[in-house]
């Protein structure tokens, strides 16, 4: 998974033509930590169609607020640099996969 931060966000997410999934996580978010290995498995499955990124919210608070993310876990999906879908809080790996399938 590609690490996204305030310095590379435009380059990695905005300029990407493929679908981009951002996993907003934080070191204190137990649910985020439990989900991450599962998300990595999804990455292997959809690697040709979706770019998988992760964003450490604890290190990028301002970026998160500008992306209107104020809670974890949150997953956003971007297409041609625009946000097309999002899930927050009651996130399961199935819901993430459903969201990806809806847009590929």
């Amino acid at each position: 998974m590609v690490e996204v931060n305030k310095d590379n966000f435009d380059e990695v997410v905005k300029k990407e033509e493929k679908l981009v999934l951002i996993d907003f996580w934080g070191p204190k978010c137990e649910q985020c930590l439990a989900l991450m290995p599962e998300v990595e498995k999804l990455e292997q499955k959809y690697a040709d169609k979706v770019k998988f990124c992760k964003l450490d919210a604890s290190q990028n608070r301002r970026l998160c607020i500008s992306l209107k993310v104020l809670g974890l876990p949150t997953f956003q999906l971007y297409k041609n640099g625009e946000k097309v879908d999002e899930i927050s809080k009651d996130v399961t790996i199935e819901k993430i996969e459903e969201m990806i399938k809806k847009h590929i």
Binding site: G26, K28, K68
Partner: peptide, 11 residues
């Protein structure tokens, strides 16, 4: 939810 409404302060 996830945009200011929360049920988990530690998160």
């Amino acid at each position: 939810i996830g945009k200011g409404v929360s049920y988990c302060a530690t998160c």
